[in-house]
């Protein structure tokens, strides 16, 4: 089961991060975080962008799991899924910097 957990780790983190960003966006819009200005933009925008960048960095740190792999198969699959998770986090989270949050 550990093998399954390790080869899924990057994608599990993406699923968590994607849900977190979606939840933060919905909650922030509902509770008026978009109306609070902070350093030239809104508080909601800062929260979302910071969370997104942290999530991308967290996804990349999982690359060290490849060092713990016990076989070539595990190493290759872990590498591919961690990179997939990080890349997907980068792209699916990018609307936090590019689009309007609550409109």
């Amino acid at each position: 089961m550990r093998l399954l957990a390790r080869i899924s780790a990057g994608l599990i983190l993406w699923a968590f991060g994607f849900s977190l960003l979606y939840a933060l966006q919905g909650t922030g819009c509902a509770y008026g975080w978009e109306d609070a200005s902070l350093f030239g933009t809104t508080m909601l925008r800062w929260i979302l962008v910071a969370t997104w960048l942290l999530l991308v960095a967290a996804c990349l740190t999982l690359l060290r799991l490849t060092r713990a792999a016990s076989s070539d198969f595990e190493r290759r699959v872990t590498l591919a899924t961690v990179l997939a998770g990080a890349g997907t986090m980068l792209i699916t989270g990018s609307p936090v910097a590019l689009t309007s949050a609550c409109a």
């Binding site: 080869i7 899924s8 994608l11 993406w14 699923a15 198969f73 290759r76 699959v77 899924t81 998770g85």
Partner: peptide, 17 residues
């Protein structure tokens, strides 16, 4: 074989997003 397993896992997770 390994790339297909990785693709399957990615597909499975992404399909929930």
């Amino acid at each position: 074989y390994g790339w297909i397993v990785a693709a399957l896992l990615s597909l499975a997770f992404l399909s929930f997003g």
